[in-house]
């Protein structure tokens, strides 16, 4: 029996008077890759961003590796190290090299010595295929390379789970493959991952489970072959036909 790394219960979130998440229950097990799909405005990015409290939910609970991250007085900065996050727009620090990006939190949050942090940072960059680019600045890298640095920045902290918020949406089509390849390898190495994305082919190939969100709730979920091959939920069929046309 594998244990839940992420366990969300009765999660609610509104922007002002507009409810965005209307009672989300979901669990992600160790080594599992969960794919979240759904129309824009369905709340999938918000859900992801609640999981490391970039957004503050109104109510509910979120357990990461057994710790309730919504509990008052929780050491959020320490917890966030367990929860990697990869952003649509990469959000690399433009004034630092790839290695600087990857080692900043190691040095300042984990208090590692420069040499040890850099060794770890180099290893993380090598893992995403960028061993040659440690000293490059973000503006010297392609979008795909930048996103891989973003992934390395998360990995260096040895997270228990990595959240991907539309990691390939800002990339030119020919650069998407490199990023997906890294994600696939990550999955094979046993990383627990939650991915919000429209890369359906990747979901089919790599996801253990697909969650379909619609209007702030989990409308349907299942194995990718069922969800894509034989969608039962009407809104899911609609959604799939619109994006695959």
């Amino acid at each position: 029996m594998s244990k839940a790394i992420l366990d969300i219960a009765a999660l609610h979130k509104s922007y002002g008077a507009t409810p965005v998440l209307k009672g989300i229950d979901m669990a992600v097990n160790e080594n599992e890759l969960v794919f979240i799909i759904g129309p824009s405005g369905s709340g999938k990015s918000t859900l992801l961003r609640c999981c490391n409290r970039l957004e503050e939910p109104e109510s509910g609970s979120i357990l990461v590796d057994g710790t309730d991250i919504l509990r008052p007085g929780v050491d959020l900065n320490r917890l966030r190290q367990k929860i990697g996050m990869v952003f649509q727009s990469f959000n690399l620090y433009p004034h630092m090299t790839a290695l600087g990006n990857v080692t900043l939190a190691l040095r300042k949050v984990q208090g590692m010595e420069k040499e040890a942090a850099e060794e770890k940072g180099r290893a993380a960059l090598a893992r995403v295929g960028l061993a040659e680019k440690v000293n490059a600045y973000p503006n010297e890298l392609s979008g795909g390379q930048q996103q891989r640095v973003g992934i390395a920045r998360s990995l260096a902290l040895e997270p228990r789970i990595v959240l991907f918020d539309e990691p390939t949406s800002a990339l030119d089509p020919e650069l998407v493959g490199g990023v997906l390849k890294v994600m696939r390898e990550l999955k094979e190495s046993g990383m627990t991952m939650v991915v919000v994305s429209h890369e359906m082919a990747f979901a089919r190939a790599a996801a253990d489970r697909v969650i379909f969100m619609d209007k702030g709730v989990i409308a349907d979920q299942g194995a990718p072959e069922d969800m894509f091959g034989n969608p039962k939920h009407e809104r899911l069929r609609e959604f799939l036909s619109r994006i695959q046309h």
Binding site: R80, G84, S89, Y93, L104, A105, S154, L157
Partner: peptide, 15 residues
């Protein structure tokens, strides 16, 4: 400075 810079830094545990 874009909001994403704050978010990236905070998400890695920086105060």
């Amino acid at each position: 400075i874009p909001k994403g810079q704050f978010e990236a830094a905070r998400s890695t545990g920086l105060s």
